[in-house]
Amino acid sequence: MGFLQTNLPYLLAGISTGGQYALIAIGYTMVYGILRLINFAHGDVFMCAALMVIYSASYMPLYISLPLAIVATGVLGFAIERVAYKPLRTAPRMSAMISAIGMSYLIQNLALYVTGGLTKYYPPVPFISDSIEIFGAMTKRVTIITPFVTLVLIVVLVNIIKYTKIGIAMRAVSRDFETAQLMGVKINSVISATFVIGSLLAAIGSTLFFSNYTGVTPTVGGMPGLKAFVAAVFGGIGSIPGAVIGAFIIGICENIIKGLGWTTFSDAFTFVLLIVVLMFMPTGLFGEKATDKV
């Protein structure tokens, strides 16, 4: 019992951060699967979702502002794609990547302007922000809820991709961009849908993340975004189950390392993992085998 009481908090924190990374990682991996583009602005979309909740919550009750902010984040993802990536569809891949980096800084600086540089605090969400006790370990209810929410959303997402028309179109596009276009798949709407879904998941992830760690600054999306990206690469970029498993592994390992007393190296671990994966398993756990040209 004593052992459980001592170590359970690390495990709980690990599973919940893992779930949050997973929701962000899906956005990276889906966009990569379809466009072969790393959407560096994704972490900032995650931050924007939180800011929208904070600002809207001061005007309206939370049960309206939360869904509203989630929808608005979807719109933001759509807008980012239309503004920054669509005009570059025929340009070399590197151009779109630079555009993504530019977009990321643009969003961060806009947020800096809006917030005035001060940390904003996420409003406590009733029920999920409450403290609870499990086997003697104190934590917030959101810690327990996160993995379940993540799993439910992933099951829904996988079903969308498997059975709906848009899902079939997505798979077709990710398999072969040009052929899918020739077959009459509306490329632009498929890509938009991908961005919208990724952003919605990031928005839900942001609600879960910031209910637990309440401070929101313009650069707060950076670290979780990077780690989610590492998770996506670890799991095999382009693969949804891979991204989710990668995210949970990273979240849990990170917290165990902190618990062992090596707090200084908790971030270093994540990035060493990235290097090791790229060296020995370039396609990750579940990635497609590299058959295509360089």
């Binding site: 924190a13 993340f209 760690y213 707060v220 917290n255 902190k258 618990g259 707090t263």
Partner: peptide
């Protein structure tokens, strides 16, 4: 860039 202080 740490926002998770649970472990500490």
């Amino acid at each position: 860039g740490t926002s998770d202080f649970a472990a500490y």
